[in-house]
Design a protein around this nucleic acid. Sequence first.
DNA 1: CGCTACTTACTTACCTGTCAGTAACTGTGC
DNA 2: GCACAGTTACTGACAGGTAAGTAAGTAGCG
Lengths: 215, 215
Amino acid sequence: MADGSTPRRTRPSKAERREEILAAATRVFGSKGYHAGSLVDVAEQVGITHAGVLHHFGSKDKLLWAVLEYRDRVDVEHLEGQHIPGGLDLFRHLMTTARINADRRGIVQAYSVLTGESVTDGHPAAAWVTERFTVLRGEIATALLQVALERGVALEEARARSAASAVIGVMDGLQVQWLLDPDAVDLAQETAFAIEAILAAVLAGPAAPRVVPAG
Amino acid sequence: MADGSTPRRTRPSKAERREEILAAATRVFGSKGYHAGSLVDVAEQVGITHAGVLHHFGSKDKLLWAVLEYRDRVDVEHLEGQHIPGGLDLFRHLMTTARINADRRGIVQAYSVLTGESVTDGHPAAAWVTERFTVLRGEIATALLQVALERGVALEEARARSAASAVIGVMDGLQVQWLLDPDAVDLAQETAFAIEAILAAVLAGPAAPRVVPAG
DNA sequence: CGCTACTTACTTACCTGTCAGTAACTGTGC
DNA sequence: GCACAGTTACTGACAGGTAAGTAAGTAGCG
């Protein structure tokens, strides 16, 4: 294991150093946010100066973009081999993710902080977050349509997209509540409950009785 | 309407000025976030210097706290007379709020930005946001229990609290998606759909068939 | 006159980004 | 296997900007 405090005998390779910086930046931006987290914070964690960080990434914005790309790459590698699940398996996967996330506070915080910050005016991560939502909505809507087809339930695409937005929304919203008050919210359980509820509503079809009469 | 650019004939009273500053601070913190929004930004909108703002509020933290209190006060005044709805009416109210919010981007952004930022380490608004969630969860859970009672459906308190968390989560999560991509998400419709789904799931009882078999 | 609401001017503290210099490593010719 | 040249990965110092907060002075109003 690399020791960050004592000087190492051999200088790490360029790729290694970049990864170290990316990991540190993920932690810093994740815990303090992009704006409040400084290059000095990141550099300290790697044991170099902030100028060293800039040597590798050019600017703070570029570092953020690299962090986001890095996350994408790591996420994809993690799913490598195991094809992206579709149909009902996708929802099982989402529930599992929530369960796993309950033990990965740092990652959840990073995601929530960056997502929340991205809605500020002119934030450099806005495009990335927007794209991520678009892709996710598409995948979930597709899985929903697939499940509906398998069960012979009529499902309009617009309705599938509504449900997809809701699934993503409830996952993100619960994460924020859980981060602020872990004792008050059981991330895994509440997420599973909500996804289940939305799924049931979609599969019940549009003719299902409304609980709240149209006002 | 007060004119911020040209000097006014009479100096506003202390209370008036404080309200002006609070309104300006709400806009600034709402659009840029607390950390990125500066006292100079706030002061400019009122037509004074940042030291003038500090004269009234002492520090930036105290200004934020005053903004949060201010929001609470305004929200309560807005509901004055009209008792806080309970039972099914609460959910109708939530859906109506979402519909109204679709035309109040600024307010939604302010709420989302502050909530998202609050999960960063040591954020001064964390306690306020946490408290807000706790109160909301309680109110929604109570309303759910009331509806269940009226309909003769068995509902455990824990399950009601799960559903309450989910309702809040989905509302917040959808707001973020809508802010980033208003064309992709119909805030009012998706919110109504999700609340309806969660409500239906709760009222169907725990014995209702699961869509996703326990894994 | 005396209080309040400021402004002006300043301090202190960061933060990003630049730049010149340096030490370590890498490749090459021999 | 080793000297030398070139490249890379930094450091340290600093420029330029912006932030919060303070203190002393001033203008207007009761």
